[in-house]
């Protein structure tokens, strides 16, 4: 139990550090998408610091686990965690969205060590995940594939084409993580395009569904464990989250979807994050 508490504390600390990187790099870049990066930060920190079988020394190792950030605009969260894991220097984060940088506005797999797929056009990632998971099974590899989607992204029809096929091919090595922060660019998901009941939809498409609080490390760890135990079914983790989580003035404010904090806002955000008010 103590070991678990220790692990959770460690992951919380990593998530907090990751949020600081997100705020810092978007502030320096003067553009980017903080809201959806912050909402998924706890899950991404847990994935990379506990769940994934990856090796920063061998980013292309064949039998590694793979992550596809289908909501590619939230790449600061992945860039941040990859730097923290040592795939590249933390200083590189300062070059986000700059000419000549490996850190493009939306992620480019051919430029970033440790990044498994180029994304940025919503709706495409889960199909790629199906291809990877199918390929891993065909090659008798233990690799697991994690695809991170937004709840707004579920508007895209291709997501459901992919969901159907993952069930057909019994891809129990595939996990979709839906960051249910309830906001998309034009407003609340329920107003732009009602998508509920999301759980029943995934279940109807033949997936194992796990609903969690996406900011609770214990629940995140348990969900990954449940996904690993699945036999013959892909798993969808529906993570209830808060867009902008950890920075109070960004929380649940639609405008922080794609806006950079100014100097003052950046300082305020750091103050909050360092004050341990994240959880």
């Amino acid at each position: 139990m103590n070991a678990d508490i220790c692990k959770i504390g460690h992951l919380q600390q990593k998530a907090c550090e990751l949020r600081e990187h997100i705020i810092d790099m978007i502030h320096v870049a003067k553009s980017g998408h903080p809201g959806g990066s912050l909402s998924i930060a706890d899950i991404v920190a847990t994935l990379y610091f506990d769940e994934l079988n990856i090796d920063p020394e061998q980013p292309q190792r064949k039998d590694r686990d793979r992550v596809i950030l289908s909501k590619g605009h939230c790449c600061p969260v992945i860039y941040g965690v990859l730097a923290m894991k040592g795939f590249f220097a933390v200083e590189v984060l300062q070059t986000l969205r700059k000419m000549g940088s490996i850190l493009q506005g939306h992620p480019d797999m051919k430029k970033v060590p440790g990044l498994d797929m180029t994304t940025g056009s919503l709706g495409q990632g889960l199909s790629v995940g199906v291809g990877m998971a199918f390929g891993a099974k065909a090659l008798n590899m233990e690799s697991r594939v994690y695809v991170i989607l937004g709840d707004g992204e579920l508007n895209e029809g291709q997501v459901w084409e992919a969901a159907m096929s993952a069930a057909k091919f019994k891809l129990d090595n595939l996990t979709a993580i839906v960051d249910c922060n309830h906001l998309q660019v034009d407003g609340f998901c329920q107003d732009v395009m009602p998508i509920e009941p999301i759980d029943k939809k995934w279940e109807a498409f033949g997936w194992q569904v796990v609903k969690i609080d996406g900011h609770d490390m214990e629940q995140i760890l348990a969900a990954f464990s449940t996904a690993r135990k699945s036999i013959g079914k892909p798993t969808c983790i529906l993570a209830e989250t808060v867009k902008g989580k950890g920075v109070s003035f960004m929380e649940n404010v639609c405008e922080w979807h794609g806006m950079a904090p100014n100097d003052n806002q950046c300082q305020l955000a750091f103050h909050e994050l360092k004050g341990g008010q994240v959880q």
């Binding site: 797929m117 790629v128 199906v130 291809g131 199918f134 291709q158 084409e161 096929s165």
Partner: peptide
């Protein structure tokens, strides 16, 4: 074992192909 029928879903076919290609197929 090397034939995948995704049904009438061409966009998914493109993504599945991309995923397979990343695995060396």
């Amino acid at each position: 074992c090397r034939h995948i029928n995704v049904g009438i879903a061409e966009q998914n076919a493109a993504g599945v192909a991309a995923g397979l290609a990343t695995m060396g197929m």
